[in-house]
Write a protein that binds this DNA or RNA. Sequence first.
DNA 1: GTTTTTCTGTGAGGTGCTTCACAAACCTGT
DNA 2: ACAGGTTTGTGAAGCACCTCACAGAAAAAC
Lengths: 235, 235
Amino acid sequence: MVVRDKKALLSNSELLSGLDEAMLDRLLSMTVTRRLDKNETLFVKGDPGDSLFGVQEGKIKIVTTSPNGKEVTLNIIEEGQFFGEIALLDGMDRTADAIAMEKTEVLVIQRRDFIPFLEKHPKLCIQVMQLLCHRVRLTSEMVEDAAFLPLDGRLAKRLLNLADLYGQEQPGGGVLIGLNLPQQELARMMGTSRESVNKQLQIWRNQGWIELARGKVTILNEQALQYVLEAAEFD
Amino acid sequence: MVVRDKKALLSNSELLSGLDEAMLDRLLSMTVTRRLDKNETLFVKGDPGDSLFGVQEGKIKIVTTSPNGKEVTLNIIEEGQFFGEIALLDGMDRTADAIAMEKTEVLVIQRRDFIPFLEKHPKLCIQVMQLLCHRVRLTSEMVEDAAFLPLDGRLAKRLLNLADLYGQEQPGGGVLIGLNLPQQELARMMGTSRESVNKQLQIWRNQGWIELARGKVTILNEQALQYVLEAAEFD
DNA sequence: GTTTTTCTGTGAGGTGCTTCACAAACCTGT
DNA sequence: ACAGGTTTGTGAAGCACCTCACAGAAAAAC
């Protein structure tokens, strides 16, 4: 059973889709599963990066921490997505921490197994490159946003993006972001303070554009947020 | 002559080093050279990305522009370096503009030539991946720095980095950054205002840590800047 | 050599966001 | 059911950085 799950996960992932049965089986034979509790750390900045991970169940956040304790969340990795490929591929240390946001199972592939496999399968190479390109685009966009958009624009963009990824249409109308995301965590994703996020959310709630609950945001007026974003882009 | 130069360029580049003679020749036969004047635009955000470029002579800057006209410089591409690989590989549009900083010659390889070539050469695949990993690391670091470091720390870091890349030891002591970089351009590299950069540079000049000239910075006290950076990292 | 453009230097004033500080609401474990 | 942690809501104070506004210097253009 577990094996079948693994295979389904592998074959549906962005990284490994389109690979044939035999290849998947060989790759599968290289993996082990690791279980993590909520808030457990998988690796930290500076660790040697000798493995690739795929999320089987749960969520992993990729965060960088400054010496004084501030954090920025660079990415949240969902079920079926892979991560940790950068350090694996270039052989350098990890540049960020990986922490389980809830009880999580990851599947682990060692470099010594993966690299030779990669060298034998050009098609897989192409997919890896696609993934890397995607990463570059995402992080570049973060640089851009940090430089151009004020807080309200960045927050609007993040909410719309989260709604897109995890949104659930509500019977009473509106789109709930189906993720337990405290405002603190939201703030970290945007490189800003929790208080600032809260104040902006309050403004929008008073406008009737969103609804708030502990760890939850429901977007009632997507158009309005879209407009905030566009206005912010024009300064 | 031109052909020999091209070959030398190709074979020494980060991207293509280690490839054998025959491969280089085949790749070479796919390239054409394009000449750009100072400030000429090679491509802009939104263009279809159907080619890969290598700088033969001169410098190209990669910048993103906001609707209102603000700019952030993401990267400066030097002689012997390649760029434009992201859009080429994933088939999406360019996400930034490429502008010649001086009279520049770039060599151009079309996607329809490069991709099939890539698929036939696993070794080249690996090198491309290395390059992509490097890009991810650089941009991630920019996100981190923007979030954690105040202006003085970011500027110190940039100057030290530039000195490392383009530094020339001066007879009278100090390290000159051998690049014509107006303070405006420096500011754009850090996502900040020209005035702020200037004021910080003045402070350091008054401390005797740097010397300034039009488009030039000479670092007299590298240690001091290093210390500023470390202090900034601790908040 | 004179004009024009680019780059630098500097002050004043405004503000977006941070930090600090605390209260209330909410969930969780035993 | 009560205690202790976590998340939210909010105000006040401060400051890092931005924008605006020039003036002079240096290079480029003519």
